[in-house]
């Protein structure tokens, strides 16, 4: 969380207009989900990967590490599609257990792989956005899209306070560890509980203090802040448009031809 947030401030694509990046990422994501095609998924993975690593100069090792985060989750999630328990064995594999089989079909396997690829490609679209665009810029785009102010203010405060609260929690944990709070599993459990409850109490108190500080600066019920915008570049718009048109044409071709890939 903190790492990915830091990376976007060093990204070479940071000062590209946020609406462009947002549109690119959302349109591409939609194409992935609509097509559910392995070819499209690989195409998208390649394009977003190249943009993030080559254009955005996000270190490749970091990028790969971040991509592996959803992989574990995806494999566990699609396990239910791969593996069936039934009385009759299916065509891909089958292990007998008593009168039942732990089994899977070729179609199920294929379906699972398709899902994993689509999901990974979709994640890569969101990574492209979040690794190259600071949260404040994303909020500005959402503001332009007329997302209600209340939701945006909540997002802003949550984003800011995630870091404050992580900091609080880690400070408390360090101070517990330095007093051997985690020496046995039983004390570790107690320490953890104490940490959680004090983080809760502290964050309630913090919110009161924050309200005072906001009031001191004439807070009137809406958190008004300046939005920063970077100029739109025609060349970027054209290349995004060209890519999306080609991508959607490919999606249509695959859909119409009824191709399984």
């Amino acid at each position: 969380m903190i790492m990915s947030d830091k990376l976007c401030y060093y990204s070479k694509l940071r000062y590209v207009n946020a609406t462009e990046k947002f549109l690119f990422s959302v349109l591409t994501l939609t194409a992935c989900i609509l097509s559910r095609s392995i070819i499209i998924a690989f195409l998208v993975l390649a394009v977003t990967g190249i943009l993030t690593v080559y254009k955005g100069k996000i270190p490749l090792s970091r990028y790969i590490k971040l991509m592996t985060v959803p992989i574990v989750f995806l494999f566990l999630g699609t396990l239910a599609i791969f593996v069936n328990v039934s009385e009759t064995p299916l065509d891909a594999f089958a292990f007998p257990i008593g009168s039942y089989y732990i089994t899977g079909s070729v179609q199920g396997l294929f379906h699972g792989i398709q899902l994993i690829c689509t999901a990974l490609a979709s994640t890569s679209c969101l990574y492209f956005l979040s690794l190259n665009t600071p949260v404040t810029d994303i909020l500005n785009v959402l503001r332009k899209l007329h997302v209600p102010a209340l939701i945006l203010e909540l997002m802003l405060l949550i984003y800011r306070y995630i870091f404050v609260i992580i900091h609080l929690a880690s400070d408390i944990t360090v101070s517990q560890n330095s007093r051997l709070g985690n020496i046995r599993p039983s004390t570790a459990k107690k320490s953890f509980a104490a940490m959680v409850s004090s983080v809760f109490i502290l964050s309630v108190r913090r919110s009161g203090e924050l309200y005072d500080a906001l009031e001191a600066r004439c807070y009137n019920g809406t958190l008004q802040v300046l939005s920063e915008d970077y100029p739109v570049k025609i060349s970027e718009i054209l290349s995004i448009a060209a890519f999306e048109i080609l991508l959607y044409l490919a999606v249509i071709v695959i859909r119409v031809s009824g191709g399984t890939l």
Binding site: L214, Q224, L226
Partner: peptide, 28 residues
């Protein structure tokens, strides 16, 4: 009457420095 609070972490709420500083004048 302007108050600078003791702990900046309890005063700064915005995500970026420019946004943070712009809060007061926009309210005015």
């Amino acid at each position: 009457v302007g108050i600078v609070f003791q702990d900046p972490d309890r005063q700064l709420f915005a995500a970026s420095v420019k946004q943070e500083i712009s809060f007061g004048p926009l309210n005015l």
